[in-house]
Design a binder for these strands. Structure first.
Lengths: 151, 151
DNA sequence: TTACATGTTGCAAGTGAGTTGCAACTATCA
DNA sequence: TGATAGTTGCAACTCACTTGCAACATGTAA
């Protein structure tokens, strides 16, 4: 894994810098971890990956950086139906919102985009005169594989 | 407020008894608190209301009873966008699922039912071959009043 | 290039929601 | 009425996350 300092700054980093926020070594590392994540990571997983690039980084810095990203609407915080306790998971805010499905049996998380979801949010904004800043649709149940298994 | 012992057993109590679960004095009280709640209550608010009927009830019993109701699908657990920290809120599971909208400014929680929501869940079940057990759509933003206020 | 002001970090300690182990208790049923 | 299996209350614990604060580093302006 190349050092984040020598990498082309990711989108998160560019976004934060364009807002005039200070770019520290620790932030660059944490941002690169979030940016390159292949699954949903919780704070302690982000810390573990950050430690590989700089063992000095403290978990407090991870929490503070995640809060910063949240406040700026650059990441979304997920509960994933609290399948694994009360921790939160983070993902870069996508172009288009999606639904998270969590299998209660195997724990697999699946994402799903849907026009109906977009239309539903439009309906909420119109009918309830409610300006949506963030939305979260999480569904718990049984995925295709687990549905057909004996209990 | 009449003593729950002398009340007609509520629907939650009837439901639990029909499943062969023991009906203790503490459970009757906690069920009646959840059943008669006019807003979404968290565990400590439920404990406070239960204490008015029986000051001996322990918070552990409240948590255990809420877990019991959750496992039996009789109440839903809500985050309400973590507006007030990480606590959870509880409501009796309704006939028809609804959406929770949380105003980031005034904290008001609004509920909304929608055919589009029902259709979206149908689409998920069909297109993703995912059997939905529980679903939660929470939205954070600005309600009608707060939208038109100066910031 | 340096000096500075202000924002950021790491550490230690704290908070708050929720859980667990266990002995005493009690609802249910024969 | 007594047996028994589930339930309760207490104390201690866990876990995710936050706060106070002194030392430090970044961006800026000279």
């Amino acid at each position: 894994m190349p050092l984040p300092e020598t990498e082309v700054p990711g989108r998160l980093q560019a976004e934060l810098m364009s807002r005039g926020l200070r770019m520290t070594r620790q932030r660059r590392i944490i941002l690169s971890v979030v940016e390159t994540a292949k699954q949903h990571l919780d704070a302690s997983q982000i810390l573990r990956k950050a430690h590989k690039l700089d063992p000095q980084i403290d978990r407090v810095t991870v929490y503070r950086t995640l809060n910063l990203l949240k406040r700026h609407g650059l990441v979304d915080e997920l509960d994933l139906m609290h399948l694994q306790g009360e921790k939160h998971y983070y993902e870069r805010r996508p172009q288009r919102d999606h639904i998270h499905m969590a299998c209660l049996r195997c724990g697999k998380i699946t994402e799903f985009e849907s026009d109906l979801f977009d239309r539903l949010k439009g309906q909420i904004q119109r009918d309830c005169r409610f300006h949506i800043v963030v939305s979260r649709l999480e569904v718990g149940g049984y995925c295709g594989q687990c549905r057909s298994l004996p209990s």
